[in-house]
Write a protein that binds this DNA or RNA. Structure first.
Length: 291
DNA sequence: CTCCAGGGATGAT
DNA sequence: ATCATCCATGGA
């Protein structure tokens, strides 16, 4: 509890080419909270406080440093990733520049899957709200740096609820899907080790057997939890960007055509390109509204 | 008030 | 295969 003890429980990680706030606010994760000059959140079961000072990431508690390093993907070479993208594409180049330091993080499988099931037809602000409510009502509460943090409820905890409980958290028609998928996880029907051993197409097929997981959510899980950096989730924003930027004036472009184009055009790190385009489109739109 | 949101499942062509 | 419709809820 003493100041010296708090200070000694902090560790430093080298974090060059990293924008913590941008990464946490880019719509890939929904529960981190700005606090005390940094951010508090949970990585699976562990509550963590992180603060970026120059090119160093301060981590509390200290023994969470390896976990934090892996979670924020500080091992990704953004130079290599950026170099692999088609930057002669001015729209992408501009988005990539605006998103310097953004990293595609490695989220725990269950909470990533569950969160994106709840994201269907919801705005980012409301996805955060749902995550908060589920954590507060049905998750364990942990404490770090003098702040309370809600841990995402385990599959078993969600599986024990009713659809009514989930609707009371604002999930609407997503309630039945989350409940059913939680039951699949709780019953041990999703073998994470096996899933991680599959190639992208097979992993996507397995994920899509889960209720509430279609092409978009499956690709979010592939990208944000399973490390398939070529995965390219297509939501309403990205679809708009693709149609306006790459299929100008062409009618009857099917969803399958858009997916095929994205895969062939953006390459092995297409997921980064997708995140750049997504975040850039959203923030530009907000600026437009303020003008 | 209206419009829309990091979609998915289903049933009809 | 592609498309239309419905599914709840809250922010803007």
């Amino acid at each position: 509890m003493s100041a010296t003890r708090l200070a000694s429980s902090c560790a430093q990680l080298a974090a060059p080419d990293f924008d913590l706030a941008l990464t946490l606010n880019s719509g890939q994760v929904f529960h981190w909270r700005a606090e005390r000059g940094g951010f508090v959140g949970a990585i699976g079961e562990r509550a963590v406080f992180v603060e970026l000072r120059r090119n160093e990431l301060q981590v509390t508690p200290a023994d969470a440093a390896p976990l934090v390093r892996r979670y924020f993907a500080l091992d990704h070479s953004l130079d290599e990733i950026r170099g692999s993208l088609p930057l002669n594409d001015t729209a992408l180049a501009r988005a990539a520049t605006a998103c310097a330091g953004l990293r595609i993080i490695r989220q725990p499988l269950w909470e990533c899957t569950a969160t994106f099931i709840t994201s269907a037809m919801k705005q980012v602000a409301h996805i955060r709200q749902i995550s908060e409510k589920l954590r507060a009502r049905y998750g364990r509460t942990a404490r770090v740096a003098g702040v309370e943090v809600g841990i995402y409820p385990a599959p078993e905890a969600i599986a024990a609820l009713t659809e009514i409980d989930l609707r009371a958290c604002g999930l609407g028609f997503r309630s039945a899907k989350l409940l059913a998928t939680a039951c699949r996880f709780a019953a041990g029907e999703i073998n994470e080790t096996a899933l991680r051993g599959l190639d992208r197409a097979r992993a996507e097929a397995m994920l899509r057997t889960l209720p509430g997981v279609g092409p978009k959510v499956a690709n979010c899980v592939l990208l944000f939890a399973l490390g398939h950096l070529e995965a390219f989730p297509i939501d309403v924003w990205i679809e708009r960007v693709l149609r306006e930027r790459y299929f100008r004036g062409r009618r009857r472009v099917t969803a399958a055509r858009l997916r095929a184009f994205a895969q062939s055009n953006f390459g092995p790190y297409g997921g980064y390109a997708q995140q750049y385009l997504f975040h850039h489109a959203r923030t530009r739109c907000r600026r437009d509204e303020q003008d």
